[in-house]
Design a protein around this nucleic acid. Structure first.
Lengths: 190, 190
DNA sequence: TCTTGACTTTACCGATCGGTACAGTCATCT
DNA sequence: AGATGACTGTACCGATCGGTAAAGTCAAGA
């Protein structure tokens, strides 16, 4: 960043990136101040609740993005095969082909999970439900669709872990292809 | 812990649990001291390299456990179907049916990844290679086996993330069943 | 009995943590 | 021009961070 943002709203994505890179505990106020170009005074003016409020708003924003760009298309796209394709593309974009980590997943593994349990839970529940709906529209039975959806979401999270562990973004891209193929195949088999 | 361990070796698993629960940055020396029952003096007597050495030795121990209880059986068990079953059971045991997080996966998402990159990479490479070998013994072509192995390891990591996010260990148990079935099915289809 | 050395206890170090207080700054409105 | 209020810079708070130093404890060996 290195310069002050025009609006408070522009601050949230920057904070998101900081939490993604450093984790909650690792994102110290000095790091945040440095990256946002804002002193503590300004930060506490915008976020009287301090770091916890910053993280909460970032989680909200992430949740809203996924709702608008992933869950809603999954629920509304009439062609379920196309819906799954949209999900794949949205993931590729959002996670920068595996170079970007899932903030919510990282928080889930961290000991801050308890503090943001509701937001974390809502993020994944929303994803699984939306994907389940799409799969049901593809002719799959509710229980089967739910199981497949859980597996696919878990697989995406795992692919992010693994591609970061091996420092190999292509693994994430490949994984997404395999996951999409698996879902399409299941719907194909009716 | 609450009491001093008889041997230094008994310290490592305790440290592992601490890092699993608090992450690297969250595992402060005061937390470590409290849980191990050891003061800073003792800790630095055993680990002159401080927290970094503790984490490194924990990673080594975890790596050794997986080598002995997962990778080696995967490579050596003559019946590949049984090998996959052993992997499932070992994961259920080690990850306490999803109640326990994968330390290496958590480190991979954390910003300490770079510091322990080699150990993290080795852990996952070893797992993927061993599983790939088992799948090849099951009649699968090298490239196919490698792809399936990557996917299975990622899926396990993702199941850990998801079951912790939803606070639902049963999701991990179910996922492991699905993963095993997928691998067995692929070998079945030759 | 005296010595040795592994281990522990305690006090301390400078740095940094999240957070607070408050005096400025500065564009906008009256 | 004067007042308002959003925003910022800076100094500071007590607590805690990772790490060091050194005196003290104590069982085993000579």
């Amino acid at each position: 960043m290195a310069r002050a943002p025009a609006e408070r709203g522009e601050l949230i994505p920057v904070l998101g990136e900081i939490f993604r890179e450093h984790g909650y505990e690792g994102a110290s106020l000095s790091v945040i101040g440095e990256r946002t170009g804002l002193g503590k005074g300004s930060l506490y003016h915008f976020f009287p609740g301090g770091k916890a409020q910053m993280a909460a708003e970032v989680l909200d924003e992430v949740g809203a993005w996924f709702e608008a760009n992933l869950y809603r298309p999954l629920r509304q796209e009439p062609d379920p095969r196309r819906a799954v394709g949209l999900m794949r593309q949205a993931c590729l974009d959002y996670f920068r082909s595996g170079r970007r980590v899932c903030l919510v997943g990282a928080f889930a593994l961290d000991n801050v999970r308890d503090r943001f349990a509701a937001a974390i839970r809502g993020y994944f529940i929303g994803w699984i439900e939306a994907l389940t709906q799409a799969l049901q529209r593809g002719g799959l039975e509710a229980a089967v669709a739910q199981n497949l959806a859980e597996g696919a979401v878990a697989d995406i999270q795992g692919a992010l872990v693994l591609s970061r562990a091996l420092d190999d973004p292509s693994l994430f891209v490949r994984s997404l292809g395999r996951i999409e193929a698996g879902l399409l195949g299941a719907m194909e088999a009716r």
